[in-house]
């Protein structure tokens, strides 16, 4: 097994070097174990849970299924890189905390990224649009009720900040 991959990734606005790595490493592994960004979580290794969701060139994807060395020349944003515009938490993050959408919290970072992606593309999603957009994010604790409530709050907050 050769550990001979060297490449540079653009993560959260920073250029990061990956050295002496194995070609089969996923972006999730590289983020967590090589680049000190453990916010993205791994729970299935096959794109069936969404816990590892990151933005790759603006698209929400499962980082467990991105071969890390192919992500060169791309823009990667992880949960650690979401812009809270100077606040402690983003509107989506704050809504999750306030609405009880967090229990064990393992699915949370992936959901936060997926919902940011949704609301950035579609600030006023319908109930079904929300459900479909996060249908790839499994939560085992909440039964999703409080997560829907959190999205609702985030949508309302964005709407209010737009009109004000």
């Amino acid at each position: 097994m050769s550990m001979n991959e060297f490449y540079t990734l653009n993560v959260n606005g920073q250029s990061m070097q990956v050295q002496d790595s194995w070609v089969g490493e996923s972006l999730l592994y590289v983020l967590r174990e090589r680049l000190g960004l453990p916010g993205s979580k791994g729970a299935c290794e096959q794109g069936e849970c969404g816990s590892c969701t990151v933005l790759l060139d603006g698209q929400a994807v499962c980082s467990c299924l991105v071969m890390a060395a192919t992500a060169v020349d791309s823009t990667i944003v992880t949960v650690e890189g979401l812009d809270a515009h100077g606040a402690e938490l983003t509107d989506v993050q704050d809504a999750f905390v306030q609405q009880g959408a967090v229990q064990c919290g393992f699915c949370t970072p992936g959901l936060i990224v997926a919902i940011h992606h949704l609301l950035d593309e579609n600030p006023q999603p319908s109930e079904l649009e929300v459900k479909e957009a996060i249908s790839g994010n499994i939560c085992r604790c909440t039964g999703y009720g409080r997560i829907f409530a959190a999205v609702e709050q985030a949508v309302a907050v964005r709407k209010a900040s737009h009109t004000s």
């Binding site: 979580k41 650690e80 938490l89």
Partner: peptide, 15 residues
């Protein structure tokens, strides 16, 4: 609200 909530939504919480 959960005292660990903020850490869990930002990815700072250490599993």
């Amino acid at each position: 609200i959960r005292p660990d909530g903020a850490a869990k939504v930002t990815g700072d919480f250490s599993f």
